[in-house]
């Protein structure tokens, strides 16, 4: 299994590119398949997942499904053989959990070790380009964060959140892979929390409840990216040649309590220590699946700067944060509460 060097890299434009997608059943994976189906520069899409995404049944023509379970011990060899047989030139690694789970051991196998398998397979098969999905939550909510974290900021994660730390470890593996294989273009997209009418993740579940906890006396700025913007950013990353980490963020920020007010959620102010004990108790009894460590994101700012994506990836968010929120809750602008600022301006 020789790695492919730059010189004899597969022609990427001649007879159409071949893309392999892990985590195709996620929102981003499905949307990417839709876009690749439409784009004539792409010849084949390999769908690697445990189950076939619904888009295949809906009449996708370029996509082919290969059952791949990233938690299996020798899956890296299988993926490598597949990548070589199908002459894949772009691997999109998007098999990550969008929500914390109580099955933390399995989550670790899936996200951290699963990324290792994908990177092993890429090292063996040598695709021209690897695109990985990550999140700005990997920067961690820390009191020393500047208002805008750029890509050079350290990924601090969270001291006791496996959900976040598995993603940090996956990113570190991707960075190491990029270091060791300089002829492979590796791009990592760190998405701000994605909101939208159809996506289902940690944030949409959190904000779907009628009430939401507020850490008494704290009101950090928040940032979201609209699901359509996120999908287009991923497509652009697959298209382009840009390498390195990119923050994919929406336009504008809002304080957390204003986000709740715009959504019409009822804020429940709690002192942090009390909130943390309650969250820990709820987590331990498995009543809710929102990890207590995520309360830090309600205390301190964790907002990323998307300038690099605009410059190198040509991605600019089309939706402002307010429109993203209204789109998420399914409210039309005349639904009250949104004309306040226009009367002020």
């Amino acid at each position: 299994m020789a790695t492919v060097s730059v010189g004899n890299a597969r022609p990427r434009r001649a007879q159409g590119r071949v893309v392999a997608i892990t985590g195709a059943c996620t929102y981003l994976g499905t949307e990417l398949i839709k876009r690749l189906e439409e784009d004539r520069r792409y010849a084949k899409v390999l769908v690697l997942d445990v189950k076939a995404p619904s888009i295949l049944a809906a009449g996708a023509t370029k996509a082919r499904f290969f059952p791949i379970d990233l938690t299996q011990p020798t899956i890296d060899g299988e993926i490598a053989a597949l990548l070589q047989r199908e002459q894949v030139d772009t691997v999109v690694h998007g098999a990550f959990l969008s929500h914390p789970t109580h099955a933390t051991e399995w989550a670790h196998e899936f996200e951290d070790v699963g990324t290792m398998h994908v990177m092993n397979a890429c090292a063996a098969a040598g695709p021209a380009r690897v695109v990985m999905v990550s999140t700005t939550m990997a920067y961690g909510a820390h009191p020393e964060n500047p208002n805008f974290l750029d890509e050079r900021a350290e990924l601090r994660g969270h001291q006791d959140s496996r959900f976040i730390n598995d993603k940090v470890r996956a990113e570190k593996q991707a960075a190491r892979f990029a270091r060791e294989h300089p002829h492979v273009q590796v791009a990592t997209l760190r998405f701000a929390p994605i909101l939208g009418p159809t996506i289902n993740n940690l944030h949409t579940r959190f904000f779907s409840r009628v009430t939401a906890p507020v850490m008494a006396g704290h009101d950090p700025l928040m940032q979201f990216v609209h699901e359509q913007d996120a999908a287009w950013a991923l497509k652009r990353a697959v298209d382009s040649d840009a390498v390195g980490p990119f923050n994919i963020v929406g336009k504008g920020v809002l304080p957390y309590t204003t986000v709740l007010a715009l959504m019409g959620r009822v804020p429940v102010p709690l002192p942090f220590l009390l909130a943390r004990s309650i969250a820990k108790a709820l987590w331990a009894t498995q009543i809710v699946s929102t990890a207590p460590s995520l309360l830090d994101y309600l205390l301190y700012v964790c907002v990323a700067d998307g300038t690099r994506a605009t410059r190198d990836l040509g991605f600019t968010a089309r939706f402002s944060i307010k429109r993203t929120i209204l789109d998420f809750v399914g409210a039309s602008p005349e639904d009250g509460a949104t004309d306040v600022a226009s009367s002020f301006a």
Binding site: V253, A261, G336, F344
Partner: peptide, 13 residues
């Protein structure tokens, strides 16, 4: 409730 909750705050900062 949304109109009430938005009193005294702007929807763009």
């Amino acid at each position: 409730w949304r109109a009430f909750a938005m009193r005294g705050r702007a929807d763009m900062v």
